[in-house]
Amino acid sequence: MVGIAEAGRTAPGEQFAFARSADRAAAVVAGAPAGTLDFRLSGQSNPVWSWDAGSGTWLRSEGGSPATGASGARLSAVNVVSITAGHPATGFGAQGGAAVPTYELVGSGDAVVATGGKVVAARWQKDAQDQPMRLFLADGSEATLAPGNTWVELVPAGSGSLTTS
């Protein structure tokens, strides 16, 4: 197996800004309390994230059941970022003739950042394919995430949604 360095490639750059500590993350500082992030991504995809104060993470469920990885461990994230973007077909066909979709991630759009049992509205911006994606609050300041793992949910513009409660 050829590693990234042997293939002449480099690891991608950091996509988001991170606070020095969880208590300084944008959602924790400026957000509203939320215990559930309920996504509608398609007719077949409805992931739900629930805040678990004991572990300090969001826990993912799919179809009403806990989502787990290959190891059997529950999927969890310190930060959940919702990115709403255009979701056109690529022109390539998949099994059964369905169009293979993609996301338009150069430009800007609505975002929601969830950290520490709180959520805050944001805007995402990516100026070019080779540039990082950044998140901004309503006042124009950069939205920072808490140190730790981050899960990004891509929400189809016009047909998907996120409901928080």
Rank of each mutant, 00 (worst) to 15 (best):
I4K: 13
I4P: 06
A5D: 15
R9V: 01
A11M: 14
A11N: 11
P12K: 09
E14G: 06
Q15T: 09
R20E: 11
R20Q: 10
A22D: 12
D23I: 00
R24I: 04
A26E: 05
A26T: 02
A27P: 04
V29G: 00
V29C: 07
G31H: 05
G35D: 09
T36N: 00
D38P: 00
F39V: 01
R40D: 10
S42P: 05
S42M: 04
G43V: 07
N46D: 14
V48D: 01
W51F: 10
D52N: 02
G56M: 01
T57V: 03
W58H: 08
L59P: 06
S61L: 04
S61K: 06
E62K: 05
E62V: 04
G63H: 06
A67L: 04
A70H: 02
S71K: 05
S71A: 12
S71E: 01
A73K: 14
R74Q: 11
L75G: 09
A77D: 07
A77Y: 06
V80A: 04
I83F: 02
T84G: 02
G86V: 04
P88A: 09
T90V: 09
F92Y: 12
G96Q: 14
G97V: 06
A98F: 13
A98W: 13
A99F: 10
Y103M: 15
V106T: 15
S108H: 15
D110P: 12
A114L: 01
G116N: 02
A121Q: 11
A121E: 13
A122L: 04
A122V: 00
A122N: 04
R123E: 09
K126F: 07
D127V: 11
D130Y: 14
P132I: 03
L135C: 08
L135V: 06
A138G: 08
D139I: 01
S141T: 15
S141D: 15
A143H: 00
T144R: 06
G148S: 00
T150N: 08
T150H: 06
E153Q: 05
L154T: 03
P156D: 04
A157I: 08
A157Y: 02
S159D: 10
G160F: 01
G160E: 07
S161W: 08
